[in-house]
C-alpha cells in the first residue's frame, strides 16, 4: 500500500509521486506518516523530509512550512521565504511608508509617469488645434 506525496514550494514542484511512508519535521516533533494516516494539519520547522519509496529514499530539505495529511494524500508546502515576526513587521512598515510617500507626492512633485501622461494629453490637444487650423486655412 502506498500514499501519494506532493512536496511543493512557491516556485516549483519538488516531489510528486507514490511513497511507502514519509517523515516530516513537524513543529512538535518528527512525524512519520504511513498510508491511512488520520487527517492532520501541522506546521513544520526547518529540517529534512524523507520520502521512502520502493526505489529508495528521497530526501528534501525544508526551511519550514505546512503539512496536510489526508488518508491517501500528503501535501507538504515548503516555505521559500524566510519568515520572522520582526522581519515581516519591518517589511509591512516599509510598504506603508512607500504608500505615504506616493500619496504626498500627488500634490507636490510629480513623478515621470504622471508627467508623461500629462504630456501625452497636451500633445493630443496641440494636434487637435493644428488640425482645426489646417481646416480653417
Amino acid at each position: 500500500m502506498t500514499i501519494h506525496v506532493d512536496v511543493v514550494s512557491a516556485t516549483e514542484s519538488l516531489y510528486s509521486g507514490a511513497a511507502n511512508c514519509v517523515f516530516a519535521p513537524a513543529s512538535t516533533g518528527e512525524l512519520g506518516i504511513y498510508p491511512k494516516h488520520v487527517a492532520l494539519l501541522s506546521t513544520l520547522k526547518p529540517g529534512e523530509i524523507r520520502i521512502e519509496t520502493d526505489k529508495g529514499i528521497e530526501s528534501i530539505y525544508v526551511s519550514g512550512g505546512i503539512v496536510e495529511v489526508q488518508p491517501d494524500i500528503v501535501t507538504i508546502f515548503s516555505d521559500t521565504a524566510i519568515r520572522a515576526g520582526d522581519l515581516d513587521e519591518t517589511k509591512a512598515l516599509e510598504a506603508k511608508q512607500r504608500a505615504e510617500e506616493a500619496m504626498s507626492d500627488a500634490e507636490g512633485s510629480q513623478d515621470i509617469s504622471s508627467t508623461q501622461a500629462a504630456l501625452a494629453e497636451s500633445m493630443a490637444q496641440l494636434q487637435m488645434i493644428s488640425k482645426m487650423r489646417g481646416k480653417k486655412g
Binding site: A81, D88, E89, T90, A95, R98
Partner: peptide, 25 residues
C-alpha cells in the same frame, strides 16, 4: 482612494519574500 501600501520595482522575477509586507498590511 486611500493607498495603504505600495510595492514597486519587482523586476521580471519577483521573490515571494517581496510580497510579504504588502500582504501583511
Amino acid at each position: 482612494l486611500s493607498i495603504k501600501s505600495v510595492l514597486t520595482d519587482l523586476g521580471d522575477a519577483p521573490h515571494f519574500d517581496d510580497l510579504l509586507g504588502t500582504v501583511k498590511v
